[in-house]
Design a protein around this nucleic acid. Structure first.
Length: 104
DNA sequence: GTCGTGACTAGCC
DNA sequence: CGGCTAGCCACGA
């Protein structure tokens, strides 16, 4: 029996390196497009922080959003992946955005 | 079973 | 464009 959180982690693990996704896309991928709150909430408690690339998940606005270890840390990780981030905002947002429901 | 919280999103002024 | 409010879902006490 997989819990809602398990789906969240599974969806995030689908995100390849150098790409990012939004809480909205993940929630939709799970089957609850309006559960973006629960997604972020679950990740915040993140029982498997290093086991899941939660830092590759950003807000729909194109901002990195937050991070359990610190937003700044999240930005550094994203930049390390090859993603350009400026003041907590992704530059080529759509370019590195990965749609979970469209991965086919 | 009920209340409160949170890494969110969309709309309004 | 910027700031604030309301709505939404899941989990914990």
């Amino acid at each position: 029996m997989i819990s809602f959180s398990e789906k969240v982690f599974a969806a995030m693990k689908r995100i390849p390196k150098g790409k990012v996704s939004t809480y909205r896309e993940i929630a939709k991928f799970i089957g609850k497009p309006n559960a973006f709150r629960a997604v972020g909430n679950t990740c915040n408690k993140n029982p498997n922080a290093p086991r899941v690339p939660c830092h590759r998940v950003v807000k729909s606005d194109g901002r990195v959003g937050g991070y359990a270890f610190g937003e700044k840390k999240k930005i550094l990780l994203l930049q390390n992946e090859g993603i350009k981030v400026k003041k907590g905002r992704i530059l080529n947002f759509e370019d590195c955005l990965l749609k979970t429901s469209e991965g086919r």
